[in-house]
């Protein structure tokens, strides 16, 4: 069974590689080569390769423990890679701490959003980046906050409301607006739709498309294949800390799930099999 799984993965990688090479001749804005990260004896990431182009949504999928969050933390400057190289805008860079990543133009929206609920929207967007430290320039901060939110066509009733009074989708919007404050080139979203309802999820996916249309590279982590397929231009699968294939969003659910889990025999594949088996019969009946 393992053998067959590896075969399936190998073929998926081959086909996706060919697609990716044909689709993009430009230099990627962010590119990782052979990135490894060890925590003691545990290899959380092994030889990771990842390219993100401007105006592209790359979905990062994988099972629990696949290394998605570690990869995000490496790119956010929270962890430093054990080996491998990261290049940004064609130049090799070192992300020593979170502010280094931020100043370079890599913004991160963490899964728990990291908002202060007791502060209003403007204060949250500008947290740590306030203008005029000894006499806060509230007017220009408020104007910029409205501009950012309007660019995202966000629906926030009042930027002077505390974040505690906002819905989950609105909070996600505030977190994304905050990450855009410093005009980043790449924005990473960790599980942006995990805690959201149907309408709010749609809102956030719209938001991701708008961010992409502004020419930013987007890395989106998600467990939800529907969401991934809705907005992603490429789907990068991680498994046990290694690359396990690059797919196009129209790849079948079965392909994605087997790449993620490493198993070809599961409920998704069984159902696909049953459907395939049923199809000729149906055609015969129609005929």
């Amino acid at each position: 069974m393992t053998e067959s799984a590896e075969q399936a993965n190998a073929s998926a990688t081959a086909s996706a590689d060919g697609q990716a090479a044909g689709g993009n001749g430009r230099t990627p804005v962010l590119s990782l080569r052979n990135v490894c990260k060890n925590f003691g004896a545990v290899s959380a990431l092994t030889d990771i390769e990842l390219d993100v182009h401007a105006g592209e949504v790359v979905a990062l999928v994988g099972d629990n423990g696949a290394g998605k969050s570690t990869l995000v933390k490496v790119l956010a400057g929270v962890h430093q890679p054990t080996s491998g190289s990261i290049s940004f805008d064609g130049k090799s860079v070192r992300l020593a701490d979170p502010s280094a990543a931020l100043n370079l133009g890599i913004a991160t929206v963490f899964q728990d959003l990291a908002l202060c609920e007791n502060l209003d929207v403007v204060a949250n967007i500008y947290l740590g980046q306030e203008k005029d430290p000894y006499h806060l320039d509230e007017v220009s901060m408020e104007v910029r906050a409205w501009t950012l939110l309007n660019e995202l066509s966000a629906r926030i009733p009042d930027v002077r409301d505390v974040v505690a009074s906002l819905s989950g989708g609105q909070r996600q919007t505030v977190a994304i607006a905050r990450s855009l404050l410093l005009d980043p080139k790449v924005i990473m979203l960790d599980e942006p739709t995990a805690a959201l309802g149907v309408a709010q999820t749609a809102e956030v996916l719209n938001l991701i498309e708008r961010v992409r249309d502004r020419g930013l590279g987007v890395i989106m982590i998600s467990h939800n294949m529907e969401d991934v397929r809705a907005v992603a231009d490429r789907v990068v699968v991680l498994r046990l800390g290694r690359n396990n294939g690059v797919f196009t969003p129209d790849a079948s659910n079965q392909e994605l799930v087997s790449a993620i889990t490493g198993a070809t025999d599961n409920s998704v594949s069984r159902r696909a099999e049953r459907q395939r088996a049923a199809q000729p019969v149906a055609e015969e009946v129609q005929a």
Binding site: N118, L127, P133
Partner: peptide, 24 residues
């Protein structure tokens, strides 16, 4: 209410981890 220090006080009091990640 009017200085960056005060804003940081509120932020740390409201959500210490968020404040840390915002570079405070």
């Amino acid at each position: 209410t009017r200085t960056k220090w005060g804003r940081m006080m509120f932020a740390v009091g409201g959500n210490k981890e968020a404040a840390r990640r915002a570079g405070i």
